[in-house]
Amino acid sequence: MKKVLFVAYQAPVGAIWVNETFRTAFGMYGEDIEPAVLLMDEAVTAIAERNAPERVGLLPVKIVKKYIEKYGTPVYAVKEDLEKFHVKDIDAGCKAQIISEADVKKIVRDCDFVIFM
């Protein structure tokens, strides 16, 4: 089984990549692949309780929550980035595991392919 980490680093409001990162990760389940999603840098704002791209007419991010629940896709968010972007109220529905930068390296190195979107 291949381990593949999909990484979003751009903010979910202003660019489509957070949505595309989740969509691509969910698309892997038809094959013998273990996908995971890592949110780093500005992308960590995606799990903020009040984050709402739809407020400016963009595609919502929250639609991914039901698929995270359905597939049990591991979602990681970097602690240092959450602090940097003052993300305090986290949407529990995203089921994100908060990890340190040091743990990011372990996860990255455990993968066959790491795909930054």
């Binding site: 698309g27 038809g30 392919f113």
Partner: peptide, 8 residues
């Protein structure tokens, strides 16, 4: 995406 998954 199913094809991408196959490629991956």
């Amino acid at each position: 995406l199913p094809e991408l998954a196959t490629l991956v």
